[in-house]
Every structure is written in structure tokens, then in C-alpha cells.
Amino acid sequence: MVKRIVGVLLIIVLAGGVLFNYVQQRKESESTTANEYNVTGDTDAKGGMISSVQETHEIGDTAPDFELNTLRGEKLQLSKLRGKKVILNFWATWCPPCREEMPEMQKFNDDFKEEVEIVAVNLTESENKEANVAEYIDKYQYTYPIPLDKKAKVRSAYTIIAVPTTYFINQEGKITKIHPGPMDYDFMKETVKSM
């Protein structure tokens, strides 16, 4: 009987402690004012928030500029492609949907390379070996530029979470469409036509 009473008292004490902590946390969160977290410096500002370090990009935004070395050892800078439509694709050799869309991209490149620049950024930091990229491209003879994102800086700038992901960029350098997942020839043709 004594053990039962001690057990019940122990449960009551523990429940009381949990309830006390819950009430204290609620009081603290209610007493916090918006200006305690205001990063603008304006104490009258309302509705301010702290955003994550990574910025997301939307249709109509200027595509973030970057410069990377390509697989062929040339420098590619996105802003130098202004005046031309750009299909900016992010991919990796280990990604089956990426491998599925690459022949379609090559066919599109063969037909429209005078009007549209395909840039296929390899997420090199995610590859087992950098040599895998060269072997894969050579095996299938893809001719569009393959910049190597060795330090994931471009991946981060474009907030790439999954591959493939493609940004369609118009002649002024503005993002016109963001497409997650693989593309086919007709999709690219229609999307570029609407840019």
C-alpha cells in the first residue's frame, strides 16, 4: 500500500513539474514583444521577421550571377550570356531523372543553340568523384557547357534542394520559369517559346 501511495505522489509531482514548466514558457512567449527580434533598428516597425540565410528566387527576379569553370576548363559567367535565352539546369551523374532528360537537352541544343544557351551545372560536390562527370559526358557526347559547382556556391545561390531543377532565364537575365524534375524536348520548346 505504501508503495502505491509513493508511486501516485511521484506521478503527481512529475505532472506538476511539467505543468509548471509549460505555464512558465507560455508566460515568457506572451511577454516577448515584436521589437525584441526586430533587426531593422526601427523600434516602431511591426511584422518584421528574420529570414533564413538562403534567399529564394522567384519568377521575375534577376538570376543570380556566377562564374564557374566548365568541364572543358573554360570560364563560364552567366551574366555574359545576356541577350540570349538560357536554360540553366542543375544535375548530377547519380540522378536517374537527370540522365533521362540529358539526351532531350542535347537534341534541343542541336536544334536551337543559336537562340538558346543550355548550361548544365553539375553539382560536383555531391559526386563520388569529379572524374565521373567527365566520363559520363564523354560517354554520351553531350556538347552543351557543363560548369562544375565544386563548392556548392551556385547550388546555394539558387537554393537547389532536388535535382534536376531548371531555371529558364530570358534575354534580360530575368527568371521566367523554375521547373523541378526532368524535362523533355517539347516542354523545353514550349517554355522557351513563351519567354
Rank of each mutant, 00 (worst) to 15 (best):
M1D: 15
K3E: 11
G7M: 12
G7V: 05
L10H: 01
L10P: 03
I12G: 07
V13Q: 04
V13F: 13
L14S: 01
A15D: 04
G16L: 01
G16Q: 03
G17Q: 05
Y22K: 04
V23Y: 11
Q24D: 12
Q25M: 08
R26F: 07
K27E: 15
K27N: 10
E28M: 13
S29T: 08
E30V: 06
E30I: 06
T32P: 02
T32E: 15
T33S: 10
A34R: 09
V39N: 10
G41F: 07
D42Q: 07
A45W: 06
K46W: 05
G48T: 14
G48R: 08
M49Y: 08
M49C: 13
I50V: 12
S52D: 15
S52F: 14
S52M: 11
Q54K: 14
H57Q: 05
D65F: 09
L68T: 05
G73D: 05
Q77S: 09
K80V: 02
L81E: 15
K85N: 12
K85H: 12
I87R: 07
N89W: 04
F90I: 06
W94D: 06
C95N: 05
C95E: 00
P96C: 03
P97T: 03
E100V: 09
E100N: 06
P103I: 03
P103A: 09
M105H: 03
M105D: 07
M105A: 02
Q106M: 11
N109D: 08
N109A: 15
D110G: 05
D111Q: 11
K113E: 10
E114A: 10
V116F: 11
N122Q: 00
L123Y: 03
T124I: 01
E125R: 00
E125Y: 02
E127V: 01
E130G: 02
E130V: 08
E130S: 15
A131Y: 01
N132P: 10
V133W: 03
V133F: 02
A134E: 14
A134L: 10
E135D: 14
E135Q: 14
E135H: 12
E135Y: 13
Y136A: 09
D138K: 09
Y140P: 04
Q141R: 09
Y144H: 15
L148W: 05
K153I: 06
K153A: 10
R155S: 04
I161G: 01
A162P: 04
A162K: 13
Y167I: 00
Y167L: 03
F168K: 13
Q171I: 14
E172Q: 14
G173V: 06
K174M: 07
I175A: 02
I178S: 00
I178Q: 02
P182C: 11
Y185W: 06
D186I: 07
D186W: 04
F187A: 13
F187V: 12
M188F: 09
K189C: 04
K189L: 14
K193M: 13
K193V: 07
S194A: 15
